[in-house]
Structures are given as C-alpha cells and as structure tokens.
Design a protein around this nucleic acid. Structure first.
Lengths: 114, 114
DNA sequence: CAATCATATTCGCAACTTCGAATATTCAAC
DNA sequence: GTTGAATATTCGAAGTTGCGAATATGATTG
C-alpha cells in the first residue's frame, strides 16, 4: 500500500471529519444547492459555511457551478455519499451492540463493590 | 438527520484522518497484531504508535487483548475495513478521471497566451 | 458608475493535534 | 524483590483548525 494512497485517504477523511461538513454533504446528497441555501439550512454564519465549502472544494469532494450571482455546489462523486451511508450502517450496528451489552448486564447484575 | 449522528460520523472520520492511523488499520485488516509488531512494520517511534493506537481505541475502532507482556490489537468491526476499500475505489476513479482529462488536453491543446 | 446582493478571503485568537523525549505502568523471569 | 521487556501516559513545543469580525470580489440593477 503506497504511502501516497494513505495520505490521499487521510486527507479525504480529514475533510469529512467535521459535523458541519457532514451536514453539507448530506444536504447535497440529492442534488445541488447554492451556497446561500446551504447557509440557510445549516443556520450558520456565512463566512463559516463558505470556509467549510472551501475545504470540501479543496479536496475535490464538491464541485461548483457559477450562475450569475450565485454559486451552486454538488457532490462530485456519489461514492462519497456511499461512504456516509456505510457509516450510518456502522453507527446502527455499534448502537445495537451497545444495547445488547446493556441488556446482558440486566440479566447478570454486577456487584458495585459498596 | 440528527446532529448526534453527524458528530459520531465526524469523530470516526477524524480518527481515520491521519496516514499513520490508516496504515495501522490496513495492517490489522487480516487479523490482530501486537503493538510491537505494528511499531516494527510502521518503522515509527514507540510513543507515537502508542498514541495513534490510543486515538483509534478511544473511538472504539480498535479493540485490544492483553496476553502477558504484550497487547494485541484488532479492528472491532469489518465495516471500517469496507470503508477503506470504498475509499480505494474512490481514489482509483478520481485518478482515472484525472488521466482522462489529461489525454483530452493532449487531443485539443490549449494556447498558453504567450 | 453607484448601490446592492451573493460569496469568498483574510485576520487574529483560542482550541486542538502531532511529535519525540522523558517517565510511568505492568508483567515475566530470574 | 530487582531487572528487563512491552506498552502507555505526560509534557511542552510547533503546527493546524475553527470561528466570527471585517474586508474583498464579482455579478446585477438601477
């Protein structure tokens, strides 16, 4: 596994490693939105949203299309959306395991040491 | 999409967002290894490897098993390995697109303006 | 060409990350 | 119990990230 590939993956993951940027990609899942629409839906500062968009653009995760006054963003490759979907599956599985653990503890209570 | 789920995803992505940690997960893809074996294969400082292991452990991406003197690490859930595999597919696709773009430029050279 | 709207960039600060050096912990063997 | 091996934690310096305030750019409208 060449190191360049690992750096590439790490860069993409790092770009995905912020809740606002996850939210942006989820909002763009079903088609493009303008920067302003994203800002409104996220309910965040204009500059802040623009900075997060710049990060995702910089890693080529998003592409943009200028139309007059506005800039429309979309996800460049649906594989990224797949990655997020896999992550949701992971989350649900972990949750289920945690619940299984809890009900296991119900059945065989542990002494508290007090 | 609840915010807690987005924070969870972002946390996992952030944990994956470092080349050394990608390398660790790739090394553990086919089964457990001790911290020492990982250190040797990575060729990095002991403390550094241990810190990266701590990050992955903290997010429950890795689990460990102590056997005498040593600690063996493994990937908790194969979905994480799937995520990395998807990422490789993504990388290859991006590469192919970039190459396509290049050969397109070969066919219809662009004036340099000089 | 002024005024305005949509978006991007810059700046400074606080918070976080990464690293190696040093130190601590834990187990095993003698 | 002392030594040594394997691993973890703490510390401080250097670098990076995230944020809002302020400012810049660029297209549109009068």
């Amino acid at each position: 596994m060449p190191d360049s590939l690992r750096r590439f993956k790490a860069d993409i993951f790092q770009a995905l490693g912020h809740p606002t940027r996850i939210a942006i990609i989820e909002l763009l899942q079903n088609g493009e939105l303008s920067a302003g629409e994203l800002m409104a839906k996220l309910g965040m500062e204009q500059a802040n949203v623009s900075q997060h968009l710049a990060v995702l653009r910089g890693k080529l995760i998003l592409v943009n299309r200028k139309a007059g006054n506005q800039v429309f963003y979309s996800v460049r490759d649906p594989i990224i959306v797949e990655v997020l979907a896999l992550m949701r599956k992971y989350f649900q599985k972990q949750l289920k395991e945690a619940q299984g653990l809890l009900s296991e503890m119900d059945k065989t209570p542990v002494t508290t040491g007090q």
